[in-house]
């Protein structure tokens, strides 16, 4: 995570970028409502001040927040729900299933602190099952932002194409990746290639895009750069877009800040399998039975084998198999 700390001006937080875009839209559209379960942001302070009538505090009551959103959405409101990712998702999974998903209501779920973002808070605050759980919801779209511009693009998408959608934001500010995602239309493919290479593809999303780029830089120095793909839309996962992105690749490594069961790598494997295009594949992530030690996120990444070194090593190990 060093790249996020060396810049003179820290990159903007995704939550601020997302909410600022909403604040701008809320001024023109009274039907936009923002509901927080006691979770804040600097941009939210501005929203609450400028658009007081369009903000609600649900109480630290995520279940109420979701049911309330269902009633408001059925009444024609465009509702954004906001909380720490672990509580927005698993705390009220039944509400999401039984009201939002069952009635296919176009509510936006905005979760902050995905993966191991709340590193010091440890297990209760880790959102490491949210991908598996939310992608299991009928009709749910799942997006992960890797930088502030992509968070803005996702806000733009929620405004332009209302749908039941879970937007995953990192707790930290992360440097902007290229090519940039800036508006709704940019998100159409569901993925972007953020580093050119061949032979092996590294697929990831969110903060780990930055670790994958670091690994790619190392491997590039060794003359074997992998292709790095930010697969920011895990559901629906576009098989044609994935196959096109993987052209020329003989093996893949997936990296996730999730329990492997049902998570990111699972989604990739399922898509390739269903498309009859399975490739040799290695999944990096948290394994069942994992044990947490206290420490910063970079230490957690190292311990769980998902940091840049682990990614580079996995690519090296895959290379002979795919040669």
């Amino acid at each position: 995570m060093t790249e996020t700390q060396t810049a003179a001006a820290p990159p903007p937080l995704m939550r601020d970028a997302f909410i600022d875009r909403l604040t701008e839209a809320a001024g023109q559209h009274d039907d936009i409502l923002f509901i927080s379960a006691d979770f804040g942001a600097k941009a939210l302070d501005r929203f609450r001040q400028d658009r007081a009538g369009q903000f609600l505090h649900a109480g630290i009551s995520e279940q109420n927040m979701v049911d309330l959103a269902a009633g408001l959405a059925l009444s024609g409101k465009r509702v954004f729900l906001y909380a720490m990712a672990p509580f927005l998702t698993l705390r009220c999974l039944e509400q999401i299933k039984a009201t939002l998903a069952a009635m296919r209501l176009p509510v936006s779920l905005l979760g902050v602190g995905v993966g191991l973002g709340y590193d010091h808070a440890t297990l209760t605050h880790f959102a490491i099952e949210d991908l598996a759980c939310l992608r299991a919801m009928n009709g749910m779209e799942v997006l992960t932002a890797a930088d502030a511009p992509s968070a803005v693009a996702m806000a733009d998408l929620c405004l332009a194409s209302p749908a039941l959608r879970y937007v995953r934001l990192d707790r930290q500010g992360l440097t902007a990746l290229a090519p940039p995602l800036e508006k709704a239309a940019d998100l159409a493919p569901g993925l972007r290639q953020i580093s050119d290479g061949g032979g092996i593809a590294v697929l990831t999303c969110g903060a780990l895009c930055h670790a994958a780029l670091e690994a790619a830089a190392q491997l590039g120095g060794e003359g074997q750069p992998p292709k790095v793909i930010d697969l920011y839309r895990i559901k629906p996962l576009s098989a044609p877009a994935l196959l096109e992105a993987l052209q020329g690749c003989r093996a893949i490594v997936t990296v996730e800040e999730q329990l492997l069961d049902g998570g990111f790598g699972s989604a990739v494997a399922e898509t390739l399998l269903d498309a009859g295009a399975m490739l040799p594949m290695r999944r990096l992530g948290l394994r069942d039975g994992f044990v947490v030690e206290n420490g910063h996120r970079d230490r957690l990444w190292r311990n769980f084998g998902i940091d840049a070194q682990a990614i580079a090593q996995a690519v090296r190990e895959m290379a002979p198999a795919s040669a």
């Binding site: 609600l56 279940q63 109420n64 979701v66 049911d67 309330l68 959103a69 269902a70 009633g71 408001l72 959405a73 059925l74 009444s75 024609g76 409101k77 509400q95 039984a98 009201t99």
Partner: peptide, 14 residues
């Protein structure tokens, strides 16, 4: 356990 929350949503929108 969902109806009252949804109902509050209706009432609030009204």
């Amino acid at each position: 356990g969902h109806g009252l929350g949804m109902g509050a949503g209706f009432a609030l929108s009204a």
